[in-house]
Amino acid sequence: MKVLILTCNTGEGHNSAAAAISQEMNRQQISCDTADALSFISERLSKIVCACHKHVYRHIPQAFRAGYGYSEKHEALFSDHSVIYRALASGTDNLRDFVEAGEYDLLICVHVFSALMASELQRRCELPVKTMFISTDYTCSPSMAESQMDLYCIGHRDLAQEYAENGVDPARLYASGIPVRREFTQPQDRSGARQALELPADGKSLLIMGGSMGAGPVEELTLKLLEQRPEDCDLTVICGNNGRLFEKMNNLEVRGLRVLSFTRQIPLLMAASDLFITKPGGLSISEAAACHLPLLCMDVVGGCELRNLDFFKARDWADSRPDTAELTRTAISWLTDPDILAQKKQQLERDFKVSASERIVSAAKELTAGRLSTLAEIQQLRLAEEH
């Protein structure tokens, strides 16, 4: 089996999901490559889309919120006659050439754009390849009805009805969970992580992050927490790719404050922490849940992230507050009450036990072997055991 993962550079979450699947494929000695789907249209377009997405997300979040709401209410936005769909379809010939040259057996799409491109590829060319969509949010993305994938791996079994209502064949749904890297599903123990990061063995640690783009009121929240935190609490603030935020935060000379830009040490930082405050991106909260790290969320851009937040709150996997003052009060309350943190951690330990990446790779094997019925039987047995 040879696999091509098609990602999209609109936020780091899709690339993180691709990396998690690729890691598990490599661990199981399956040949796997990753490519930016939009680059098959043009490298320049891919860079423009990425830059625009980053600017809107960070500086005009209300526009993202409004745009997502509009796309949910106007299905024709992604229909095969729409400007967006035609633009995506323009990369079909280049994608076909790449797939044929690479002799791939399976295309895995971790973004709705790449799913639409792969669907158009199969409509036109009917290549001897299978296709999978991997959801990176706890909701059904707008335009799913326009895609035609062989299998849809979704974040949770409770989302199946939503996908079906949005035009996806229930027989093609597989409740895999959202894939995260093994460093999150098998994290280092807390004491070892704290030692590796040169943090005190005792005391509490609070981790704050606004996603890969450093979005949201990170600076305001950090300043409030520094004023009110317990004496034995240290703070780590991750600014992601937001250079301006990093420069401002890094100028603060405060005991017990660590400021980082984009870092690959997230699994270690999560393992060392007692509480995580973040925006509810699908990958960020899935990584924290896999680490069994209690979560407080700030609603920054709405849209799919608000759906993620609602899904997690409904299952007591996370909580949120409407502003930085309330977030600060709640964070301090949790950090000074070991019973609350223990309860939150135990809930995540009960509900996040299995690697979604392993489930996805198993599903990929069954799909390429033409055993979808076996996959359905496996899922039914697992769901019965979980109930």
Rank of each mutant, 00 (worst) to 15 (best):
Q195C: 06
A196T: 07
A196P: 01
L197K: 08
E198Q: 15
L199T: 03
P200Y: 12
A201F: 05
A201K: 14
A201Y: 07
G203P: 07
G203M: 04
S205K: 13
G210E: 02
G210C: 06
G210P: 07
S212C: 09
M213I: 04
P217Q: 10
P217D: 04
E219G: 01
E220H: 09
L221W: 11
T222H: 03
L226S: 05
Q228H: 15
E231S: 06
E231P: 00
V237P: 03
N241M: 14
N242Y: 07
G243V: 08
R244A: 14
L245R: 02
L245K: 13
F246Y: 08
F246K: 11
E247I: 00
N250W: 07
N250D: 14
R258A: 03
R258T: 15
L260S: 11
L268Y: 01
L269F: 08
L269P: 05
A271N: 07
A272I: 13
A272V: 11
D274A: 10
D274V: 09
L275F: 09
T278A: 13
T278G: 01
T278V: 02
P280E: 04
P280L: 09
A288E: 12
A288C: 10
C291N: 15
H292P: 09
H292Y: 14
P294D: 08
P294H: 06
L296M: 14
C297N: 14
M298T: 11
V300L: 02
G302T: 11
G302A: 08
G302V: 13
C304A: 12
C304R: 08
C304P: 00
L309F: 00
D310R: 15
F311E: 02
K313S: 11
A314L: 00
D316Q: 15
D316I: 00
W317P: 05
W317Y: 14
A318K: 03
A318Y: 05
R321C: 15
D323M: 13
